[in-house]
């Protein structure tokens, strides 16, 4: 077990931290959604990596193959992707309406406008 055999998981951690950082550090509302997407994508890779078996094929019943990857994580992540798409769509549509209402999508400018009320 070398560090390289966990290469997928290293990428998961890096992506996760990148996404989380963008989410926290960016003041632009669209960039925040991008960060959220990267953050969620890292979790998708985490699941898919866990389902992979070395030398395994797609889970199709056939006499030729006996080793196949676990299909359940894929199914779960398909659902999670749908949830992620819905979240992004809702988030972006909120950003559109925020832009209409405030005229800006920078968080600090919006906060200023609310305080001056």
């Amino acid at each position: 077990m070398s560090a390289l055999s966990f290469l997928n998981y290293w990428f998961v951690i890096i992506l996760m931290m990148v996404g989380f950082y963008v989410l926290i550090a960016q003041g632009n509302l669209v960039k925040k959604i991008v960060g959220l997407n990267i953050f969620q994508t890292s979790v998708f890779i985490l699941y898919i990596s866990a389902g992979k078996i070395t030398g395994g094929t797609a889970p199709i019943l056939d006499t030729q193959w006996s080793v196949y990857s676990n299909p359940l994580p894929h199914v779960l992540i398909l659902t999670a992707i749908v949830v992620g798409v819905a979240t992004s769509a809702l988030g972006l549509s909120l950003v559109v309406r925020i832009k209409e209402a405030y005229g800006t999508i920078e968080e600090d400018e919006i906060a200023q406008m609310d305080e001056s009320l």
Partner: peptide, 23 residues
């Protein structure tokens, strides 16, 4: 709108944490 956006970001982070845990 802003409140909803803020809730969406925080809520999605929470949900993603839950998915990681379940995974």
């Amino acid at each position: 709108l802003r409140a909803s956006y803020q809730y969406l970001i925080m809520g999605s982070v929470g949900a993603t944490f839950i998915v990681i845990g379940i995974g």
